[in-house]
Simulated scan of single mutants.
Amino acid sequence: MSTLRQQFIAFAVNAGVLRFGDFVTKAGRQSPYFFNAGLFNDGANLGQVAEFYAQTLIDSGLEFDMLFGPAYKGITLAAATAVALAAKGHNRPFAYNRKEAKDHGEGGTIVGAKLQGRVVIVDDVISAGTSVRESVDMIRAAGATPCAVLIALDRMERSGTDDALSKLSAVQEVSAAYGMPVLSIANLNDLLGYISDAGAGAELTQYKAAVAAYRQRYGVA
């Protein structure tokens, strides 16, 4: 596990964004952990997570022209990431969408810079892929090209119901459907590696078996 990935998992745990216990996911699964990017809700934490997003994008070597943040969580994440990129010498424009079209002023559903060139979609996680699909449609409709999705945590879970699980994760399905990479700051393997480390403390290592079992049941290779 890279230093950046280790640092991100530790940061998410300390910020209370990554929690362990007994949770129900959007798919209705009982999960031993839960990641809620909405809890990056103060200036310091938002600034720090933006640093992780920006560095992950830079380290990928991906060529891109701008960022797009899908409503609602993606709006703040894309804006903060644009600020962090600029501070690292990569000033790029960003845009986001509103759920309902504005019927006065500039009108429309897109706010910010004009969608053009190679666009990176910035979001927190990918569950069903609905947000990505809607973003891809908007970007293409504007004549621009979606070139990647950038997320915080890849849960590496196969989609579908328990008796009909897909061979692919939601992230892999999105990548295959749109022919573009999905970049993540960290993933489920990084999470498990972190809590398996004795240095994480007994409070976290107690969840190692539960997380490993969850990965065994729902995870992709």
Rank of each mutant, 00 (worst) to 15 (best):
D103T: 14
D103H: 08
D103I: 14
H104L: 09
G105E: 05
E106V: 06
G107I: 04
G107S: 11
G108H: 00
G108V: 01
T109C: 04
T109F: 03
I110K: 04
I110Q: 05
I110D: 03
G112M: 07
G112R: 02
A113E: 07
G117C: 10
G117S: 10
G117H: 06
R118S: 12
R118D: 13
R118F: 01
V119W: 04
V120A: 07
V120L: 08
I121S: 01
I121F: 03
I121R: 04
V122S: 00
V122M: 03
V122I: 11
V122Q: 04
D123W: 00
D123C: 01
D124W: 08
D124M: 07
D124C: 06
D124G: 06
V125F: 02
I126V: 14
S127Q: 06
A128D: 14
G129N: 06
G129W: 03
G129V: 08
T130V: 08
T130R: 01
S131G: 14
V132I: 15
V132K: 12
V132W: 02
R133A: 14
R133M: 09
R133W: 00
R133N: 09
R133P: 01
E134S: 13
E134W: 10
S135L: 07
S135W: 03
S135F: 06
S135P: 09
V136N: 08
D137M: 02
D137P: 01
D137A: 14
D137F: 07
M138I: 12
M138K: 14
I139H: 02
I139R: 02
R140E: 14
R140D: 00
R140S: 11
A141Q: 01
A141F: 01
A142T: 09
A142W: 11
A142I: 11
G143C: 10
A144M: 10
A144H: 11
P146S: 09
P146G: 11
A148W: 11
V149Y: 02
L150G: 00
L150R: 10
I151D: 04
L153F: 15
D154A: 08
R155E: 01
R155H: 05
M156T: 13
E157K: 12
E157D: 13
R158C: 13
R158V: 15
R158A: 15
S159L: 12
G160P: 12
G160N: 13
G160K: 10
G160M: 14
T161G: 12
T161C: 07
D162A: 15
D163L: 12
D163M: 09
D163H: 12
A164H: 15
A164G: 14
L165V: 02
S166F: 09
S166R: 07
K167G: 15
K167F: 02
L168H: 15
S169F: 13
V171E: 11
Q172D: 12
Q172G: 06
Q172W: 00
Q172C: 02
E173Y: 00
E173R: 12
V174W: 03
V174H: 00
S175Q: 11
S175T: 08
S175C: 03
A177E: 15
Y178E: 08
Y178K: 08
Y178S: 05
G179K: 06
M180T: 07
M180H: 06
M180F: 14
P181Y: 05
P181Q: 08
P181H: 09
P181R: 04
V182P: 01
V182K: 00
L183T: 08
L183K: 09
A186Q: 06
A186L: 07
N187G: 15
N189F: 13
N189I: 05
D190Y: 05
D190S: 09
L191P: 05
L191R: 06
